[in-house]
Amino acid sequence: MDIAIQIGVVLFQIVLVLGGVLTHVAYLTYAERKVLSDMQDRLGPMEVGPHGLLQPLADGLKLFFKEDIIPSGANKIIFSAAPILVLVPALIGFAVVPFGRDSLQIGSIEITPYIADLNIGVLYILAFASIGAYGILLGGWASNSKYALLGGLRSAAQCISYELPLGLALVGPILLAESLSLKTMTEAQGGGFWHWFIIVQPVAFVIYMICAIAETNRLPFDLPEAESELVAGFFTEYSGMRFSLFFLAEYGNMILVSCIAVVAFLGGWQAPFSFLEFIPPIIWFLAKIYFLLFFYIWLRATVPRLRFDQLMTFCWKVMLPLALVNALVTSIVKYIVT
C-alpha cells in the first residue's frame, strides 16, 4: 500500500512537470514569434484567438493532422526512432530540477517540488543531453537526403564540441557547492543575490550560456538547420507529428538548459533579497527562467548566423581553454580557501 501511494505521488509529479513543461514549450513558440515580431516592428500571430493566443493549439492540431511521410530509401526503423531519441532526453532532464523550496503536505503524503533528488543530478542531465545528439545524427542519416545528412553531421560535430566547455563551465558551480545534486546546489546559494554563483563565476556563466545556445542549435549557432544552405537541416524530410517531436525537443531543450543555468548560476528558487522571500520560490524560479528564455529570443532577433569554421574555432580555441582555466583557477582557490 505504501509503495502504491509512493508510485502514485511520483506519477502525479511526473504528470505535473511534464504538463507544465509541454505547456511552456507550446507557449514558448508563441512568445518567440511575438517577441521577434515586436523587435522587427511587426505584429506576429494575430488571427487565432485574441492576439493569436490560441496559435500554438492551432499549430499543434495542424501538425497532428498532417500526412506522415516516410521518404523512400529511408531507414524506416531509425527514421521513426530518431524523434523519440531526441525528445526523451530533452524531457527526462526535468526529473531532477528543483522547482521550489517547500514540499506540499497532504495528510501523510508529501509532494516534493522535484521528482527526484539525484546526487549526480548535473551528470545525469549532461549524459542524457549527449544522447540527444544521437537522435539528430541518426535522424539526419536515416532520411536518405543530402541536406538532412549534412545537417545531422554538422549538428553532431557542434553538439560534441560544445558539450566539453559546457560541462567544464558547470565544474565551477559544482566545486563551489561541493555537490552534483541540483537541490544542494540551489541551497548553497541562499541568502541574497551576492551568494549566487554568477558573482564568483561570471566567466563560467558566460561560457555556459554560449555553449547552451550552441547545444540547443539556436541562433547564432543554428548551423544544423541553416535554411539558406540546408533547407531545414536534419529534419528536412520529417513532417507532421514526427516533425513536431523534433520541434518540441528543441524548445524543451531550451527550457532545460535555462533551468540548469538558473540552478547553477542564478540561485535557483532563491530570492535575490531576504525581504523578498514572501514571494513563493517557484515564482522566482519561473521569473529567472523566463528572463533567460527571453534573452535567447532577444539574441535570436539580434545576431546573424556564424560560419561553420568560425563556430568550431570559437569552441576549440576560445571556449575550451577559457573553461579549462576557469575550472583550474576555481579548484585552486577553493583548495586554498578551505
Partner: peptide
Amino acid sequence: EILQGLRLTFKHMLRGKVITQQ
C-alpha cells in the same frame, strides 16, 4: 558589439510601432 545590437533590438521592441498591416 553584440550588446549594441541587443540594445537596438530592445529599443525597437519598446517602441511598439508596427509597420505592417493586418
